[in-house]
Write a protein that binds this DNA or RNA. Structure first.
Lengths: 122, 122
DNA sequence: CGGAATCCAGTATGATACTG
DNA sequence: CAGTATCATACTGGATTCCG
């Protein structure tokens, strides 16, 4: 065993894969939409706003596959499909919130830097 | 004033822009490479491994523009350009580390979920 | 050495139409 | 309602070449 400073099974590729998930355009917004309770497909679509049907389908499928979201089908007519944030998804949303707080707190300074940089016409 | 729960200047687009930066393929790896000290262009390239010249150039330029990294040119022959993590960049790296820790801690469970999901041939 | 410029492939995303 | 299928397009990232 030479992995003295990392828990067994830790894989950098897996970690950066999750980071890229966080950075994708819709995943986090969908997770946030589900934080306060279950929603159905078009409910999420309304809540997120701007997302296409296809991207919502894909995003939800990925989230379900990863165990972040649970999908429940009611065989009524018309059918109803309910999406609920699983514990893993809640946990992720809490962690991401810290990052979002950081971003909110520092975006002013970042925009300042950009203005200065652009003013110098690099 | 109706913005009772947000600091002035907070903008969701700015926040998700930063999240997408975190999720991009190279930004975080470059920041991590610089955490322990300054490095020159090809030093970062060696440290990160797998990054192309162009992507490193682009990534560094963006990081510099945002005030995460400082760039110092020494007009020697051949020229030397040193990159240093600015306080803002250090701050970001600390925040991202929490997310990386979460990812490392939960990727086992996520992989499990995926296997189960795929086994059911959805 | 530290880039800039160009070209190109793969993927992410969007719009639209159709289905059970 | 909750998707699937198809096409079009934009953006990301990689390879290569050239420059001060």
């Amino acid at each position: 065993m030479d992995m003295t400073d990392k828990p067994a099974g830790t894989d950098c590729r897996g970690v950066s894969e999750i980071l890229s998930r966080v950075g994708d355009k819709w995943t986090i917004q969908v997770v946030i939409a589900l934080r306060l309770g279950s929603l159905r497909f078009n409910g999420i679509k309304r809540e997120v706003g701007g997302i296409s049907q296809q991207m919502l389908t894909r995003t939800l499928k990925t989230l379900e596959r990863d165990g972040m979201v649970e999908r429940t089908v009611r065989h009524t007519t018309p059918p109803q499909v309910e999406y609920t944030l699983a514990p893993l998804g809640h946990s992720l949303s809490e962690t991401v919130r810290h990052l979002a707080d950081w971003a909110a707190a520092h975006q002013g300074r970042i925009k300042e830097h950009r203005s200065q940089y652009d003013a110098r016409q690099h």
